[in-house]
């Protein structure tokens, strides 16, 4: 690691003031950033440790939304009785991220701000039509993920919370890389009222909505309807784990598994 200065603010205001320095970087759980620093892929002059800002942590219900503080760990989301009751698919997803030790440190805000193309949380944020709250505004999920590790966040803008609308039913299914746990492809399906939202992670440069699947599932909310959709491989990721064609084949299959889980016909997968 290159050397850096270290700040440990105790309030959001203090953190935002420190992050106004373009050479400073926010440190949340550090489960991505610390490995990145170790590989010398980043060399910030200062880290702003968000770990002691209590107002960034916690889970609460407000009407039809579950609001989760950006500093809440994956383990806390997975274990939360409130999330388990209101949005079990979100608790399940949080419980699949990385491994138990990563989940004990990694945070929702860190994942959402980093926008790794293979991260799980972006699928839920987009699939549930969540709102990303920052120190200065609220951003709709549909406007948030812009590309590879690219979001609508401005320089120095800090994610403070994400509010998830409670879905009628929802489920997430993925194929994980067995070594890293990252999604080779993952599909989040949610039914809210008459509408269906389908979000895909792992397959493209960033999480995206699968509108063809949404339309097919709005007509018929069945695994068969999802599986009948043919997904084009153009623009999908290619790496040593999977070809674009394989990822294209996975998308309808995982959507079908998620729909089956929504309908209670399949317990796991």
């Amino acid at each position: 690691m290159y050397p850096f200065a270290y700040h440990r603010p105790s309030s959001i205001e203090e953190a935002v003031a420190l992050l106004a320095d373009p050479e400073a970087k926010a440190l949340a759980g550090g489960q991505t950033l610390i490995p990145v620093l170790k590989q010398r892929l980043a060399m910030p002059e200062a880290l702003v440790d968000l770990g002691r800002i209590e107002s960034l942590k916690g889970i609460r219900r407000e009407g039809d939304a579950v609001i989760i503080g950006a500093g809440t760990t994956h383990a806390d989301v997975a274990a939360s009785p409130l999330v388990r009751e209101a949005l079990p698919a979100l608790a399940d997803l949080a419980g699949l991220i990385g491994d138990p030790q990563v989940r004990n440190r990694g945070t929702l805000g860190g994942s959402v701000a980093n926008a790794d193309p293979s991260a799980d949380y972006p699928a839920a944020v987009l699939g549930l039509g969540a709102t990303v709250h920052t120190d200065r505004r609220a951003i709709s999920a549909d406007d948030y993920f812009l590309g590879l590790f690219t979001t609508a966040l401005e320089g120095g803008e800090l994610v403070t919370a994400v509010s998830f609308a409670v879905a009628e039913v929802a489920a997430y299914r993925s194929v994980r890389n067995p070594a890293s746990g990252y999604a080779v492809a993952g599909v989040f399906v949610a039914r809210v009222g008459q509408g269906v939202r389908v979000a895909v992670t792992g397959a493209g440069p960033s999480a995206f909505r699968a509108t063809a699947l949404e339309q097919a599932l709005a007509d018929s909310f069945t695994p068969e309807a999802a599986r009948a959709v043919s997904w084009p491989e153009e623009g999908l990721n290619e790496d040593l784990h999977a070809s674009p064609a394989y990822r294209a084949a996975l998308i309808p299959v995982l959507a079908a598994r998620a729909v089956a889980a929504c309908c209670g016909t399949v317990a796991s997968g």
Partner: peptide, 25 residues
């Protein structure tokens, strides 16, 4: 690289990978 788990310790009662935590944290 925070994959193997040989460095797992408990931090405030929770298991963590101590190669992926800064001491100052």
């Amino acid at each position: 690289t925070s994959q193997c788990g040989a460095c797992v310790v408990w931090l405030d009662g929770r298991s963590v990978k101590s190669c992926a935590v800064l001491a100052v944290q």
